[in-house]
Amino acid sequence: MVKHDNEYHFPPVERLLTDLEAFRLVGELRSDRGTPDQARALMAQFVAAAYTNDGPSRELITFVRDALAEYLDGKSLEAAFRVKRGRRGRPTADARAGIDLAKVMLRHCVVRGSTVEAAALEGAAACHSSPTNAWAAFRDHKTKALQEMRMRTDGPPEVNEAFPEHRDRIIRLFGVAIA
């Protein structure tokens, strides 16, 4: 919302997206297949929906929350909201391996309830790595890994904050409440 001369600017939105449309668009953007115009359209949807009685959908709130988490993790606001593209292409093989290792650890910690120490040992064994590398991958890639586990396109999300035990474990791991 931009304030000009004591008036608020409402972004032009022809119609509010359905939850499914927002979910698909967020998935496109999170997988870096979307465009900056689509990212701006999602932001406009969020602002417009904030002025309705129902408010923004869970998908729009998730998009904004995850973008702010990436910003707090060191990305620029433009890159976090996908308005400006970061590096082109997919993650490097090393980054992809790190994300996969962080996902294994999150799966053990959040879904199965293991300790982080046990998850590091399991992740290291599963990914043919060392516990030290598992800890480093978790530290560097846990936010991206959590996003990927939430936004699965081939089935239900692996991590779901609607489950109290998942939410409590995520809070313990990340040190913040998940909305």
Rank of each mutant, 00 (worst) to 15 (best):
M1E: 15
M1N: 10
D5R: 14
H9Y: 12
F10Y: 14
R15T: 11
T18A: 12
L20S: 13
L20F: 03
F23I: 03
R24G: 12
L25P: 02
V26Y: 04
D37P: 11
A41M: 13
L42D: 09
L42M: 15
Q45R: 08
Q45V: 04
F46N: 04
V47N: 11
V47L: 09
T52F: 01
E70M: 02
L72M: 09
G74P: 08
A80D: 02
F81R: 14
F81L: 15
R82G: 06
R82S: 09
R82C: 11
K84W: 02
G86E: 13
G86Y: 01
R88P: 04
R90E: 01
T92W: 03
D94T: 15
A97K: 04
L101Q: 13
K103D: 01
M105D: 02
G113P: 15
G113W: 14
S114W: 05
E117C: 00
E117H: 07
A120S: 08
C127H: 02
H128N: 08
W135P: 00
A136M: 05
A136R: 03
R139Q: 04
H141M: 01
K144P: 00
A145C: 08
L146N: 05
Q147T: 06
E148A: 06
D154E: 08
D154A: 12
E158F: 05
V159R: 06
A162N: 13
F163S: 07
P164I: 09
E165S: 13
D168H: 06
I171Q: 15
